[in-house]
Design a protein around this nucleic acid. Sequence first.
DNA 1: CTTGGGGTTTAACCTTACATTAACAAAAAT
DNA 2: ATTTTTGTTAATGTAAGGTTAAACCCCAAG
Lengths: 236, 236
Amino acid sequence: MSELKKKILLVEDDPNFGIVLKDYLMMNEYDVTHAKNGMEGFEKFKKDDYDLCILDVMMPYKDGFTLAKEIREKNTEVPIIFLTAKAMKEDVLKGYKVGADDYLNKPFDSEVLLMKIKAIMQRKATETVADSKQFEFKIGEFHLNSKLRFLRFRDEEPVKLSPKENELLRLLALHENDLMPRELALTKIWRDDNYFTSRSMDVYIAKLRKYLKQDENVEIVNIHGEGFRLVINQEA
Amino acid sequence: MSELKKKILLVEDDPNFGIVLKDYLMMNEYDVTHAKNGMEGFEKFKKDDYDLCILDVMMPYKDGFTLAKEIREKNTEVPIIFLTAKAMKEDVLKGYKVGADDYLNKPFDSEVLLMKIKAIMQRKATETVADSKQFEFKIGEFHLNSKLRFLRFRDEEPVKLSPKENELLRLLALHENDLMPRELALTKIWRDDNYFTSRSMDVYIAKLRKYLKQDENVEIVNIHGEGFRLVINQEA
DNA sequence: CTTGGGGTTTAACCTTACATTAACAAAAAT
DNA sequence: ATTTTTGTTAATGTAAGGTTAAACCCCAAG
């Protein structure tokens, strides 16, 4: 049964490091293709479908950012992780809004890389294209603008939401009337799933309930051991 | 059509290093003009349009900072990168005040330079042309003329704005009712994003709020960790 | 050269905003 | 019955933002 191994494109010019990393990832059940420079990386990218790209930034002739841009022109979805030299300053990275899913400074702990890969795969698996672009929601008599992070009830003054409140409510709204699994919120918003983040999330659920109390027909229901459901009852 | 190469003015007095750097940049598809001192650099600058200037700081007769200042008098837009001989913090700061986009300590990794160049070009590329031409705004009952740098409330005497006040308010107005990211203002107006420029910006926000207080329906709202929003409420 | 003023930055101090953790109560599952 | 999960409120620590005043820098007038 040809396993459904996830395909990773690894572009890394340092041959030693590249091979070590490739082997490590393959040991962890990924199907890894290794390209030794930007050109080769792009060729291989065009020839196949990948679930993830790991690009070294510092490469001669075609650096990781440039390659990422080319990849993005072909595919706006595929997650990209950059491997950057430690010396690289934040502002340089920020200048490049290629849409990276993560950065890792060399040298890095390979287990950290694995975790990031897992988190990204998980996130992508449960994400639709439309979702990532929706920032306004009608929730009963509320209006959520999750770009500007405010929640308005009818025509009243909007309430400002904190980043976490906002993301959580948005995620619930995306799953309106349906289950929003605990684990999903934890991996997407908290990027980690453990006892404490889980309790933290519960605290935020309580906060949201307080806001939403104004509208009788809106409530957040718990599904024990599973997650939460944003229920919206419409009156006839 | 492939001749859309970006033009770089390189001013570097060390002939060996200058030529090596020029060649390296040309290998990376830039159109490089090399000047061997500040005088020559300024002459060449006046004769042509460049997309970027790379200036050595340590040069006889006319140092990089002085040259930068002259360049800025002619052109407030063109990005400037300084090459400094050692880690000299004072000079670096001085450089930023001329409006440098970045600086590099010699000796530097040429790939890092490439990266910075790309980041800067990218930033320039994403600025819209339309924005750069709009200089008059209606802000509630205010009128902002950002060419002449004054702000008028109704028919009262216009208030004169300082350059920073003016640019900041203009940037807010360009994003009217929408988020104006902190980072955007800092990189565009202050050309640097650090603790101090950030605090400086907050001071200017306070000043603008003071001016805008006259109109009840205009306010600058903070979005924690993101930026500011110029909100204009219209009464029916 | 020195002095003064406009513009800007830095410092200081204070308030608000956020996220996490703790603590304990209640509900659900086993 | 007892363990696990969830609800809720409060306490804590840290970061971000608001405000004011002093320091600083440059430049131009005395």
